[in-house]
């Protein structure tokens, strides 16, 4: 039997960041993104969920030049570089808001285990699938 402390291995936990707020109107979306990036250093199994108004965070074509606020939407496209590669977007939330996947940014990552092939990070899921994602987590952080 391997003692984990002896091998230097650490338990990897499943972390889910739940994003339910639109960007810019409140600080939640940006705060979440910053925590995700800082948390990436701990090399856990990270997923992001976007539901309710959180789906607006991933809208393409955001241009904040005229509201004097930093446009942080390009940073979602860098998440793959921080090994954050699972972004679950709730279908019902998009539909209720008159949106479809075409309205979202294209976000990809390079799969280290598959010859650096570029793969999509966004997974469209329905409400019950997202509930199942939530159920399997060890830690859930809400924004």
């Amino acid at each position: 039997m391997n003692d984990m402390a002896d091998t230097g291995e650490q338990t990897i936990k499943k972390f889910l960041y739940v994003n339910r707020k639109a960007p810019y109107g409140t600080i939640y979306a940006l705060e979440s993104l910053e925590v995700v990036l800082i948390g990436a250093a701990f090399e856990q199994d990270v997923s992001l969920a976007f539901l309710d108004d959180g789906v607006f965070q991933l809208m393409k074509g955001q241009d904040t030049a005229d509201i004097g606020v930093k446009n942080f939407s390009p940073t979602y496209r860098a998440l793959g570089d921080f090994e954050v590669t699972k972004l679950f977007v709730e279908k019902e939330s998009l539909e209720e808001r008159g949106l479809s996947e075409d309205d979202l940014m294209e976000i990809t990552y390079e799969d280290e285990d598959d010859d650096w092939e570029e793969k999509p990070s966004i997974h469209l899921v329905n409400r019950s699938e997202l509930a199942a994602v939530m159920a399997e987590q060890d830690v859930i952080l809400s924004f």
Binding site: P23, K60, Q62, D63, A65, D103
Partner: peptide
């Protein structure tokens, strides 16, 4: 307009 643009 500026708020629409910011939100894509």
């Amino acid at each position: 307009g500026p708020d629409l643009n910011a939100r894509g």
